[in-house]
């Protein structure tokens, strides 16, 4: 599982305060804790509170890179904030994210290529988020075609299937499994299949259980990446166990310990 640790986000109070006071302590701690917990990437999102999003993004990335070598996911919907983040990047990097419109894909894929970055592409476009599998797969096709056209390495593309919160639209999550399955077969190598896991269970009473259950149900269908709470040990263990059950790793009695090392 490619786990993208979500905690360095200005939506959280400790990160918001850190940005405001330019106090790196909390950010450093979160970078180390998430790295130790096994994060493949550290998501960096300045949130909405920062007055200077560009300055905040650069500062957060510099603090993290000063602390750990863990790859970074630059999380912003604003192109200039992403670009500013890339201008100071030293660690391996993933851009989170672009929509599936042709002109957006063009712009972001070319930017990613310039920085040898991976790229999360959402299955949504200016018409919004499709409600059915067919329309979502049309966007996936468009993403893959664009990648092939621009000779963008497909193994560096992460398709985010835009997982709805369970308490917003209960019909949607079940469609995701079929979509993961279809993306897996679209090319060789196929793009990764990603979801925003915490978003899915946000505002519910059984947040962690819902996230954990969705993840373990998704893995057999080909879900292999998620923006998630890597500090939730039960969630990380469940993901690894699901992968062991699907024969993606060699079993051993201490497989959990081995993975955490």
């Amino acid at each position: 599982m490619i786990s993208i640790g979500e905690r360095i986000n200005g939506m959280f109070k400790d990160v918001r305060e850190a940005i405001k006071n330019k106090d790196p302590k909390a950010v450093r701690e979160l970078a180390i804790k998430q790295t130790d917990a096994g994060a493949s990437f550290l998501d960096v999102n300045v949130g909405t509170a920062a007055a200077d999003s560009i300055g905040a993004m650069k500062w957060l990335i510099e603090v993290i890179q000063d602390t750990v070598k863990t790859p970074i996911a630059i999380d912003s919907q604003k192109y200039d904030v992403v670009k500013a983040g890339l201008s100071v990047i030293k660690n391996e990097v993933l851009i989170n994210s672009t929509k599936g419109d042709t002109e957006e894909l063009d712009k972001y894929m070319n930017l990613s290529k310039d920085y040898n970055a991976s790229l999360i592409c959402l299955t949504m476009d200016k018409c919004g988020i499709p409600q059915d599998i067919e329309r979502r797969m049309e966007i996936v096709m468009k993403i893959v075609e664009k990648a092939v056209e621009l000779e963008f390495d497909l193994s560096k593309i992460y398709i985010d299937t835009v997982l709805f919160p369970i308490n917003v639209d209960q019909k949607q999550p079940a469609l995701m499994f079929e979509i993961f399955n279809q993306i897996k077969m679209i090319s060789d190598p196929p793009p990764h299949r990603n979801v925003g896991l915490s978003n899915f269970s946000q505002g519910t009473k059984e947040k962690r259980l819902l996230a954990r259950t969705f993840l373990t149900m998704g893995i057999p269908y080909g879900l292999d990446a998620a923006v998630m709470d890597v500090l939730d040990k039960d969630l990380m263990d469940a993901a690894l166990t699901a992968e062991i059950i699907m024969n993606q790793h060699v079993y051993s009695d201490s497989y959990l310990t081995a993975c955490r090392k």
Binding site: V250, Y251, S252, D253, S254, Y255, T257, A258, K261
Partner: peptide, 14 residues
Amino acid sequence: DINIGKQVNILVSE
């Protein structure tokens, strides 16, 4: 036994 093989490597590395 591949599972035990991995296990011994883990034990030694611990």
